[in-house]
């Protein structure tokens, strides 16, 4: 499978960690599905416009966590283990909540106040 993904990189962090994040994002959003075969390292590097060694490093890291597995002769695949994907989703959700809470704290809201706001926000929408 040749990925047709929208890669984008920011300037302030290493590229390999951004590749890891984006592949996770692609899995969560369903752009890559469990069991999908990944393109070759070089094709993926070419598509993302990054160095092949950097792509290799990111994929190895994802392999280490089990999200990607490789079959010796036929290439790399996205895991089909639902619980691994769910874990990763939860992790991403936690990161987002953390970021959101931090920005709310900056404008003076505590966690509890934020929770209330969210509850009311839902109610307001349901009316």
């Amino acid at each position: 499978m040749f990925l047709k993904m929208a890669w984008s990189f920011s300037d302030d962090r290493p590229i390999y960690s951004q590749i890891i994040e984006q592949i996770k994002q692609f899995i969560v959003s369903g752009e890559i599905k469990p069991g999908d075969k990944l393109a070759s390292v070089r094709d993926m590097a070419s598509e993302a416009g990054v160095n092949p060694n950097t792509m290799q490093r990111a994929l190895s890291e994802l392999e280490r966590t089990g999200l990607i597995y490789s079959q010796r002769t036929s290439g790399r695949y996205i895991t089909q283990k639902e619980e691994l994907i769910q874990d990763m989703k939860n992790e991403l959700a936690n990161e987002k909540i953390n970021m959101f809470l931090q920005s709310m704290q900056q404008i003076g809201y505590s966690k509890e106040q934020v929770a209330d706001l969210i509850k009311n926000y839902k109610e307001a929408e349901n009316k």
Binding site: D11, D12, R13, P14, I15, N51, R57
Partner: peptide
């Protein structure tokens, strides 16, 4: 290495 530089300096 580019990624080491970006890691340690926090910029491109």
């Amino acid at each position: 290495s580019v990624d080491d530089l970006r890691e340690s300096e926090g910029k491109s």
